[in-house]
Design a protein around this nucleic acid. Structure first.
Lengths: 138, 138
DNA sequence: TCAATTACCTATTGACTTGGTAGGTAAATA
DNA sequence: TATTTACCTACCAAGTCAATAGGTAATTGA
C-alpha cells in the first residue's frame, strides 16, 4: 500500500512539472492547489530536496523547481524515495538481511516476479505522462 | 507491502495442499515445519476458517484441512483475506468513502491500472502452482 | 535598513498497526 | 478419563502514519 507521503510527493512533482519554466514555485501555492497541509508537505519536500530531485531557494521570489525535464523523472524513483522500497516483501528489500529460507522458500519466486513487474510498471511511468491531461469534461 | 500475516497464511495453505488427502493436519506440525510460532499461527488460521477456506476439528486426530482442491485456491483470495485489500491506494479500496478529487485526480488512472495488474497477477496464481516444486539442489 | 516572504529545522502527538505472548476453555478421541 | 487438539479473550512493546507546533535562517523588495 502506497502511503500519503508517496502519493503527495507524486502530486507535488506533477504540480511542479505543470509550472516548470515559471521560476520557483512557493510551497504555499502548491499546498493550496493540492489541498494538502503545507506543514506536512514540508516533510515530503525535504526528502525530495535531499535526494536532489528538486531544488529550493529561500526568500521572496523563492520556492521550489524541478532540476530535470518532466520526462526524465520516473514515478518509481519518486515513490522509492518516499516509501523506502517498493518491494512487496521484506526479504526482497535491499537493506534487509538475507532470509535463511531463501534457498527452499516456495513463495520467493512469486514475490520476486511481482517485484520485477511492479518495478517495471512504476519506472516506465514518467512525470510528463501526467501533465496536460486534465479532464475537461468537468 | 505484504505483511507476515499474508505470507504466513500462504505458506500454511501450501503446507496443507502438500498434505491434502492425508486427513486433518495438526497446527503443531505445520508450525514446526514452517518454523512459525504456533500461537501466532492460531490468529491466522482463525481467519482462514471463518472465511471458509479451510476447516478444523478438535480432539485427537484433529487439525485442519483444505475444503477444495489446491488448484481452486488463488493466492489473491488468500492475501485479500489476510491483508484486507490488495489495493495500492486507499481510494481504490472498496470500504473507503469516495474521494472528492476522483474526477480531476491525475494519478488515479495509474493507481487503477496498477490495481488491475496486481489483482490479475495474484488471482492467476493457484495453490497448486507451489506444490511439488521443492528445490532438490539443496 | 527593515519588513515581508520563503525555505528549513527540531520536537511532539494521538491513533493505529504489527508481530507477537499468556492463559485459558471447549470438543473429540483412545 | 486423560490426552490431544482447536478455539477464545486479553494483553503488550515497538513501530509507523499523518500530521501539528513553534521556531530559525536566508533572500528580496521597498
Amino acid at each position: 500500500m502506497i502511503s500519503t507521503k508517496g502519493r503527495y510527493a507524486l502530486r507535488m512533482m506533477i504540480d511542479l512539472a505543470e509550472h516548470s519554466g515559471q521560476g520557483y514555485v512557493p510551497l504555499k501555492d502548491i499546498a493550496e492547489r493540492q489541498q494538502i497541509s503545507k506543514k506536512y508537505m514540508e516533510i515530503i519536500v525535504k526528502d525530495l530536496v535531499s535526494h536532489k530531485l528538486i531544488s529550493g531557494v529561500s526568500g521572496k521570489g523563492g520556492g521550489y523547481r524541478l532540476l530535470k525535464e518532466p520526462d526524465e523523472y520516473s514515478v518509481g524513483e519518486i515513490l522509492e524515495i518516499m516509501e523506502g522500497s517498493l518491494s512487496p516483501v521484506a526479504c526482497l528489500s535491499c537493506e534487509s538481511e538475507p532470509c535463511p529460507r531463501s534457498g527452499t522458500c516456495r513463495t520467493l519466486p512469486m514475490w520476486s516476479e511481482f517485484d520485477t513487474m511492479t518495478h517495471d510498471f512504476f519506472y516506465n511511468k514518467k512525470l510528463s505522462d501526467f501533465v496536460g491531461k486534465q479532464d475537461r469534461s468537468l
